[in-house]
Design a protein around this nucleic acid. Structure first.
Lengths: 165, 165
DNA sequence: CACTCTTCCTACCAACTAAATAGGAATACT
DNA sequence: AGTATTCCTATTTAGTTGGTAGGAAGAGTG
């Protein structure tokens, strides 16, 4: 029900990495390329993007973003390289990374009730049925976010199929 | 993605009101009826339940619960009566009150991105497609919570139909 | 080997919201 | 009048989130 800034930033960063280093259309008209050299860009999938470039392109505080990128790397979604020509890159093609993958990487469980995962809520008496509702909600969310990949988002082809009412 | 304590308490209180004044099974074995007199109980739907009874039955702090009950009353889901034999009652049959009704009464919008409703997120560049994802998530949640009524929960007949993957 | 760049990691602070408490005003029944 | 109860507001407390700062470790370059 609530998407945190951390999850939001993580998705935007992943999209920017997948797109190859920054958005092309930025509202205030600045250039999104901080360093002059355009660098080698073998269009195949693995070019490295610097954290500073991502932060600038999507308007995310750099030091906050670094912690998020770290989570994404630990979850196995990003590969990083240090040094002068360092940066981040996807470990898999963008078509094989879903929104749910990113959300779970930074947020843990998808649906939480007062901070706890939905499955261990502990209801008494008449409220016992609530647990199943939360699990159903969790399942419904999972269907949407696991079906949508980064490629879908970049090509604007995400079809928002809400289940028939 | 995150169900707050306020939403959780609101649903449990509504269920207890619908059930007529408290859970029958409480873990520590105390009686759920605070006052000795059982009072008149015309089993039709409109018996009044005291806030103290609800708080005791579901383990919710009383004064915190009162604020939640106020929201539910303002939203038109509960009817209250003051005085010695006062209490709260549903304004509609439990079969006509959905989980979504209760959630929206206490929480406002169903899906929020960093505190804002999902529809006005304001994405730039490559992240533009994210807005549609959140709207799809919101729709998927709405289907589940609007389909489930309080009666479904009380009779344990809620069928958790996750849409076919 | 120095130097620079960048990721990596830890600790810390500020702001906000949720959660809970306390106390008082209004209302209804006896 | 008196009592029980709902109703409403103001305040406090705790925890999470959002954001910042400052290095330490690795990678390339001269």
């Amino acid at each position: 029900m609530y998407i945190s800034a951390r999850s939001d930033y993580a998705l935007r960063a992943m999209l920017a990495v997948a797109a190859g280093g920054g958005g092309t259309t930025r509202p205030d008209g600045g250039t999104t390329r901080p360093d002059g050299g355009d660098g080698s860009r073998p269009d195949g999938g693995g070019e490295l993007v610097k954290a500073a470039s991502l932060a600038r392109a999507q308007g995310i505080p750099l030091s906050f973003l670094q912690g998020i990128l770290l989570d994404l790397r630990r979850a196995g979604l990003l590969h990083s390289h240090r040094g002068t020509e360092g940066g981040y890159a996807l470990t898999r093609p963008a078509s094989q990374i879903s929104v749910g993958d990113v959300l779970r990487a930074v947020g843990g469980s998808l649906t939480t009730v007062r901070g706890l995962p939905a499955e261990d809520a502990g209801y008494h008496g008449v409220a016992a049925g609530l647990r199943d509702v939360w699990l159903a909600v969790d399942g419904a969310i999972a269907v949407v976010v696991d079906r949508t990949t980064l490629t879908d988002l970049l090509t604007h082809q995400e079809q928002e199929q809400a289940p028939a009412r």
